[in-house]
């Protein structure tokens, strides 16, 4: 354990003493502040405007009435499917969506909640942002950049150090390879999370000062119509947790790629996949290639919204299982391959 802590602190020292890290962090901050200024300006423009005009929601119906309306729509949909008027693919998102909406309105009815005062996780309740909406949005933007930063750092600290020979120098010290690999991995994770969490806290402060304090509770619904409502700040924490999972998996994947290719490949492949794989997978998936779902989908958070995961018909639990299997594979290969690897 002592060996790991020493190696970990040295790796952190290496990252935090590099100019690249700070430049990246400052760039993220500047971009986020530009977005902040835009939101603030938008908020001022919408000041005094009626909420229903902003959201487009004009219904005065009760949750029970809305649930009943969705039940009717579901029945009509099923009838259309039975008559062959609607073509159903191997997955049926429409049915899931109707069921989720019914479950949400029934929940609101049972718990005396106003559905127009609720929002979904990862989304904003109104264009006139509340502080929670602002923090949620900025946290997502920050973590998207922090994940890119994690890819760059992981490629540099593993494949990069093997390429330039500095790994050789480190391995002639009395430290186990597995310990060094773990230290490198965790230090990159710590660096990316530091940026993500510190900035999120900063945005919470900015949000409290410059944005509307009234917040909406967040409703969660899974593919099996289990519904719960949580505080918006608890939702931000949940969102942070899911972001941490993405960062962790992406780091492990970058190290995995670095086991087989040089630094350039270890940087480019994860970066391209992170930026484009989800979109490509969604396209392939919706055009009838369900197996694509096995290769991507880290957006767990979307599995808790009524419309469900981007890869339709897949529950959050399926996404978690797929991610876990891939993560275990990457981890196992990384450790075994690094133990057996020759450093010429």
């Amino acid at each position: 354990m002592k060996g790991f802590l020493t190696a970990f602190s040295l790796e952190c020292k290496k990252i935090f003493s590099s100019k690249g890290f700070w430049i990246f962090a400052v760039v993220i901050l500047i971009l986020c502040l530009i977005v902040t200024a835009t939101f603030r300006t938008l908020g001022e423009m919408l000041e005094g405007m009626d909420e229903s005009v902003i959201t487009g929601s004009t219904t005065d119906a009760t949750p029970a009435q809305l649930a009943e309306a969705y039940r009717e729509q579901l029945a009509q949909y099923r009838e259309a499917v039975a008559n062959g008027d609607v073509e159903v693919k191997w997955y049926d998102t429409t049915e899931t969506r109707y069921k989720n909406m019914i479950a949400i309105y029934e929940y609101c009815d049972q718990h005396n909640l106003n559905p127009s005062k609720l929002t979904y996780i990862g989304s904003v309740s109104s264009l006139r942002m509340s502080s929670a909406d602002y923090v949620t949005t900025m946290s997502q933007i920050t973590f998207a950049f922090a994940t890119i930063m994690a890819i760059v750092l992981a490629a540099r600290t593993f494949a990069g150090e093997i390429d330039d020979g500095t790994m050789r120098m480190q391995l002639t010290r009395p430290v186990k390879r597995s310990v060094l690999l773990t230290a490198k991995h965790t230090s990159v994770f710590a660096a990316a999370m530091t940026v993500g969490v510190v900035f999120t806290v900063l945005f919470m402060i900015i949000g409290a000062i410059f944005f509307n304090a009234s917040t909406y509770d967040v409703i969660l619904v899974d593919a099996y119509q289990n519904v719960s409502v949580i505080n918006p700040y608890a939702a931000i924490l949940l969102s942070l947790l899911f972001s941490a999972v993405i960062v962790e998996v992406v780091i492990q994947f970058t190290l995995f790629i670095g086991t087989f290719v040089s630094k350039t490949g270890a940087l480019a492949i994860p970066l391209v996949l992170y930026l484009f794989a989800d979109t490509v997978a969604q396209l392939l998936y919706s055009t009838g290639l369900p197996w694509v779902g096995l290769f991507t989908n880290l957006s767990w958070i979307s599995g808790l919204t009524p419309s469900g995961a981007p890869l339709k018909g897949m529950s959050i639990y399926t996404m978690m299982a797929i991610t876990t299997v891939w993560y275990a594979l990457f981890t196992t290969v990384n450790y075994i391959a690094f133990e057996k690897r020759d450093l010429k």
């Binding site: 060996g3 020979g165 500095t166 050789r168 120098m169 002639t172 010290r173 009395p174 430290v175």
Partner: peptide
Amino acid sequence: EKFMSKVGAQIETPV
């Protein structure tokens, strides 16, 4: 770990 604690090494061009 014990083995390498007794060894000092310079391999090829120092990096």
